Simulated assay, not measured.
Amino acid sequence: MKLTRRTALIGAAATLATPGLLHAQNAAPLAAPLVTRNTSSFTKQSWQDHFSTLGVATIVADTQSRALHYWNADGTDYRVYPTSVPKTDELTRRGYTKIVRKKVGPTWTPTANMRARDPSLPAFMPAGEGNPLGTHAMYLDWSAYLIHGTHDTRKIGRRSSSGCIGLYNEKIAELFSITPVGTQVRLV
Rank of each mutant, 00 (worst) to 15 (best):
M125R: 09
G55L: 08
A32R: 15
N131F: 05
M1V: 05
I10R: 11
M125E: 14
G20F: 10
H69A: 10
K44G: 11
V35E: 13
T111R: 07
G157N: 00
S52M: 12
G134I: 00
T153F: 07
G157V: 00
L54H: 06
S143E: 03
T179P: 08
S40H: 13
T88S: 15
D118V: 06
S40G: 11
L91C: 04
G134C: 03
T18H: 04
I178D: 09
T92F: 04
A67S: 15
G95F: 08
P110E: 00
S65L: 09
L175F: 14
T135F: 05
A14K: 03
Q45F: 00
L68Y: 06
S65H: 06
L133T: 01
L121Y: 08
V80H: 08
K103F: 06
P86R: 08
I178M: 14
T153R: 14
G166Y: 04
A17Q: 07
G75K: 06
A57L: 02
D74S: 01
A137S: 13
A24T: 13
R159N: 14
M114R: 01
D152K: 08
V85S: 02
T4R: 08
Q64F: 14
P33M: 07
A13C: 08
S162F: 09
L22I: 14
S40I: 02
R66L: 12
E170K: 10
A112G: 02
Q45H: 05
R5Y: 10
I156R: 01
E90N: 13
L3Q: 11
Y145T: 00
N169D: 15
A13R: 08
L146A: 09
T53D: 11
N113R: 08
G11L: 13
V185L: 06
E170Q: 15
P110R: 04
Y78H: 15
P122N: 05
P106F: 05
A12P: 04
K98R: 14
T83P: 11
P82S: 07
A12N: 05
Y81N: 03
E129K: 14
N72T: 03
G128D: 06
T179Y: 12
R37E: 07
A31R: 07
S41Q: 10
D77E: 14
Y145N: 04
A127I: 10
R93D: 06
N38V: 02
R94G: 02
A57V: 00
H148S: 03
N169C: 12
I147K: 00
S84T: 03
V181G: 12
R79H: 11
L175Y: 07
L22F: 11
D77F: 08
T18S: 11
R101W: 15
A57D: 00
Y139S: 05
A28P: 10
E174N: 15
Q45G: 03
E90F: 14
R159G: 03
W142Y: 14
S160A: 15
R37D: 02
A57K: 00
T43V: 12
Y96M: 05
F51V: 01
D89S: 03
V185D: 09
R101Q: 15
H69V: 06
T58P: 06
P82E: 05
